[in-house]
Write a protein that binds this DNA or RNA. Structure first.
Lengths: 145, 145
DNA sequence: TTAGTTGCAAAACGTTTGCAACCCG
DNA sequence: CGGGTTGCAAACGTTTTGCAACTAA
């Protein structure tokens, strides 16, 4: 699943910065980081390379529901849990994600040839739970979905 | 889960058009339909109302991963299967969707307070399968993820 | 009466593209 | 050397917003 790509300096730095970022940065977050090391790099180079590198199988692209694309160095299949308050995204380790139980879905369901699925979990992250407990106000209309 | 909203003429027509559209239209698809009945309506009114109506619990918003938002009259919880070729979206009936098996996820996983999850299925719809069989060319690099 | 809603235009947002200069293999 | 890649600027498609006029309750 990994295809060869020409390894430019920009590409190396982008990959390196992604590797050392445990969060799931957006293209412009990564651009901000990379720009510290390569001040003349452009945002479009970052976009183009993330696209290229994800096609080449070197990074993975997270197209999380209704949100900006995010990129991930972690190539192992895993799911994500998204904080509906601060939008932070964390990894979920596969054995607990429910993916296993889903494999018995009939592939010809609705006439579709099934090629994959994605599970996203939503919740409130530890930090936001704490803030919530401190302030004690609750507005359900602000919640996702 | 349904909050009252002021029922304007525009809102009525938007709701009615959404109700009679079995697909999951985007805001501009709906705008095109509604404009035939209300030629002076603006796209921003459609956007604003879909947002308002979905907050009010009268329609549901599908924020499918990396794609344009789509809207749905069907308020019953159900999942979706998305054609990776033509982007068409169909409903999946709950008993087969796998949601049931996921309910045993521990809610304190990773310190998150779990509030929900979403499953999206990807596949090739009957129409695109047929077209594929007719043309016989296959480019795996064009497939989603 | 008045707070919520409309149409319009413009802005915002994330992302992609055309292009000439450049550089990796 | 030649084709892939870069930086820049400009365009793109989708969505949001500011505003004065309007309208449902």
């Amino acid at each position: 699943m990994k295809y060869p790509v020409r390894m430019t300096h920009q590409r190396e730095v982008i990959l390196d910065e992604l590797k050392r970022t445990r969060t799931h940065p957006t293209a412009d977050e990564l651009y901000t980081r990379v720009k510290k090391r390569l001040p003349r790099i452009s945002l479009s180079t970052v976009y183009r390379n993330l696209e290229t590198l994800s096609n080449a199988g070197l990074v993975s692209k997270l197209e999380i529901t209704g949100r900006q694309k995010r990129f991930d160095w972690n190539q192992e299949p895993h799911d994500h849990i998204i904080c509906t308050i601060c939008q932070r995204i964390d990894d979920i380790i596969p054995p607990m994600s429910g993916l296993g139980q889903l494999s018995d879905i009939p592939s010809d369901r609705h006439g579709y040839q099934l090629t994959g699925w994605r599970v996203e979990f939503f919740g409130i992250c530890p930090d936001c739970q704490q803030k919530h407990n401190e302030t004690h106000d609750h507005d359900p209309s602000k919640e996702t979905q």
